[in-house]
Computed example of a mutant assay.
Amino acid sequence: MKFIYPAVFRPTEDKKYNAFFPDLVCCEASGDTLDDAIENANAAAYDWIYTELMEFEGKLPPVSDESDLELQEGDVVRNISVNIRFQDGWDE
């Protein structure tokens, strides 16, 4: 199954990036570069979504539209796509 959520990447004073998902409570990541932050955000989103699916039987929050996000100057928004396979007997 594919899940896509927007992530906001905010530059820090030391030219690194912090990322958060407005729809995924407490799902955050960071990186030395935007590419690193995107990669780390993808891993964080995967872990968050996988855990929610296993613990709450597929009840995920609705996806925000980018136009509804409260952004600051310099913020970068990327849609993060997470693929999770569900198969009997398949263990990650």
Rank of each mutant, 00 (worst) to 15 (best):
E39T: 10
K2W: 09
R10Y: 03
V25P: 05
E13M: 03
L34T: 08
N40T: 07
L53T: 11
Y50A: 14
A41L: 03
I4A: 07
A29D: 03
E28R: 04
T51V: 00
A19L: 02
D23N: 09
D32N: 14
F21H: 04
A45K: 13
Y50C: 14
I38C: 11
Y17P: 10
L34N: 06
L24A: 00
S30E: 05
C26H: 05
D47P: 08
T33P: 14
C27L: 06
A29G: 03
D47K: 08
T51C: 12
Y46S: 05
R10Q: 02
I49S: 13
D32M: 06
A41H: 08
V8H: 02
Y5M: 06
S30A: 11
S30Y: 03
P11Y: 11
K15G: 07
L53N: 13
Y17F: 02
D35Q: 15
A19C: 05
L53S: 00
A19T: 06
K2S: 08
A41S: 00
D23K: 11
G31D: 11
P11W: 13
A29N: 13
T33C: 15
I38R: 12
T33N: 14
A19M: 10
N42M: 11
R10S: 10
C26P: 04
D35L: 12
D36C: 02
K16M: 13
I49M: 04
D23P: 10
T12C: 04
K15L: 06
A41E: 01
N40W: 04
F3M: 05
M1T: 15
D47Y: 14
E13P: 09
K15Y: 01
Y17Q: 12
L53W: 01
E28M: 13
I4Q: 08
D36S: 00
V8E: 10
D32E: 00
A45M: 04
I49D: 07
K2M: 00
W48I: 09
P22W: 15
F9H: 09
A29T: 00
Y50W: 03
Y46K: 12
F21T: 02
V8S: 05
D14Q: 10
E28T: 02
D14H: 12
P22K: 14
T51D: 03
K16T: 04
C27D: 09
P11C: 11
C27G: 10
D35Y: 11
C26R: 07
V8F: 13
V25Y: 08
R10K: 07
E28Q: 00
I38N: 09
E52Q: 15
K15H: 10
A41F: 03
T51Y: 12
E52T: 15
A19N: 01
W48M: 07
N40S: 03
P11F: 09
Y17G: 11
N18G: 14
D36W: 07
P6A: 02
C26M: 03
K16N: 14
F9V: 01
A43W: 00
E28Y: 09
P22Q: 09
L34Q: 01
G31H: 08
V8A: 11
V25Q: 00
P11R: 09
N42G: 15
P11I: 00
G31M: 12
D35V: 14
C26F: 05
A44M: 07
A45V: 07
E39I: 06
A45R: 05
T51A: 10
M1C: 07
